[in-house]
Amino acid sequence: MVIERILIFLLALVGFSAIVGAKNIIKKVFGLNLLNSAIVLLYILEGSRIGEQAPILGEGVTNIVDPVPQALMLTAIVIGVCVTALALALAVRLYKATGSLEIDTISARLHSEQ
């Protein structure tokens, strides 16, 4: 149980380190994606600690898992992909403007333009 959480935590950490440390802006967006999936995994994993059946009521269903985190994560996944799309569009725009994907080069070129 603790091992699973630590693995998820490592996934989040890997994602966050890419956001902070990667030079390539598309890799930064990858990192954001990973960070998001780590949190989704955490919610779903912990939400299924109670109960044994999928939360679809029907004949013989008595012991369902907690459906609240699942519903929350549907929203979170969608918001995550929206932000990803926007970030990538911005990244493409930055590339077209500066001809580079490295964050430092982009920033330097934009500021020298001023």
Partner: peptide, 24 residues
């Protein structure tokens, strides 16, 4: 200008990764 895209991108990355912590 492309400057605006850079500003938007850095705000987006910072703020939406912070919002993941909010979720946590």
């Amino acid at each position: 200008k492309a400057n605006a895209a850079y500003a938007s991108f850095s705000y987006l990355m910072l703020s939406s990764s912070a919002m993941v912590f909010f979720l946590l």
